[in-house]
Simulated scan of single mutants.
Amino acid sequence: MNLTISGHHLEVTPALREYVLTKLDRVTRHFDQVVDVTVLLTVEKQKEKERRQRAEVTLHAKGKDIFVESAHEDLYAAIDQLMDKLDRQVVRHKDRLQDHHHESPKRSAMVGEAS
C-alpha cells in the first residue's frame, strides 16, 4: 500500500503522521486490498473559527476509488470524523464485493433429494 500524507498551509509533524497511520490501521484491517492512500491536511483561511481544519482522503482500492472529506475546528477531530466516514464506506464497498447470492446448504440438500 502506498501512503502519501501532505499538508496545505500546514506542516505535517511526526505526531500528525503517526496519528493518521494509527487511524488508517482500522480501515486496512477491514479491507486489505487497498492499493494507494492519499491524505491531505489543510488549514483554510476563513473568518469564522469553526470548520477551518480540513482533512481529505482519496483511497484507491481494488475495484473502486473512495474520496472522503471532513472539516472541524480541531484537526485531530477532523481526522477522527474522516476515518469514521472512510471506515463506513470501505465496509460498504467490501460488502458489495462479496457474493451474497448463494444457495443455502439446506435448500441445495432438498433439491438433491428431489431428483
Rank of each mutant, 00 (worst) to 15 (best):
S108R: 14
D84T: 15
G7Y: 01
S70Q: 03
K106L: 14
Y76W: 05
I66C: 01
L41D: 01
E11Y: 09
I66R: 00
E11D: 12
G7A: 02
L16I: 07
V20A: 06
T42V: 14
L10K: 01
V35S: 15
D95E: 14
L16F: 05
K49G: 12
A61Q: 02
L86F: 03
Y76H: 05
D65T: 14
K94A: 05
H60D: 11
S108G: 08
E48T: 15
Q33W: 07
V27M: 03
E69G: 09
D36F: 13
I79L: 03
R107M: 14
V111G: 08
K106H: 14
Q33N: 12
E103R: 13
Q98F: 10
E11Q: 08
L10G: 03
Q81D: 12
V91L: 06
S108E: 15
S115K: 14
L82P: 01
L86V: 02
L82S: 00
M83W: 04
Q98I: 15
L59D: 01
I66K: 00
V37G: 00
K45V: 15
L16R: 01
R92S: 12
D32S: 14
M1W: 07
A61R: 00
G7L: 03
N2P: 08
G63H: 02
T42Q: 05
L16D: 01
K62P: 07
S108K: 12
T13W: 05
T13Q: 06
Q89M: 08
Q98L: 15
T58D: 05
V43L: 10
V111Y: 08
L24V: 04
F67S: 10
S70V: 02
E44G: 13
D25L: 07
R26A: 10
R17E: 08
D65H: 06
H60M: 13
A55N: 02
I66Y: 00
D65R: 06
A114C: 08
Q81F: 11
F67R: 06
R17T: 03
Y19R: 04
R17W: 03
L59Y: 00
S6Y: 10
A71H: 04
Q89G: 06
R92A: 12
L10H: 02
T4F: 13
D36A: 15
D25A: 12
N2G: 13
L41E: 01
A109K: 09
T22A: 11
Q81I: 09
H9T: 06
Y19C: 04
H60Q: 11
H9A: 07
R26P: 01
L10Y: 02
A114Q: 10
R51M: 09
V91T: 07
E103S: 15
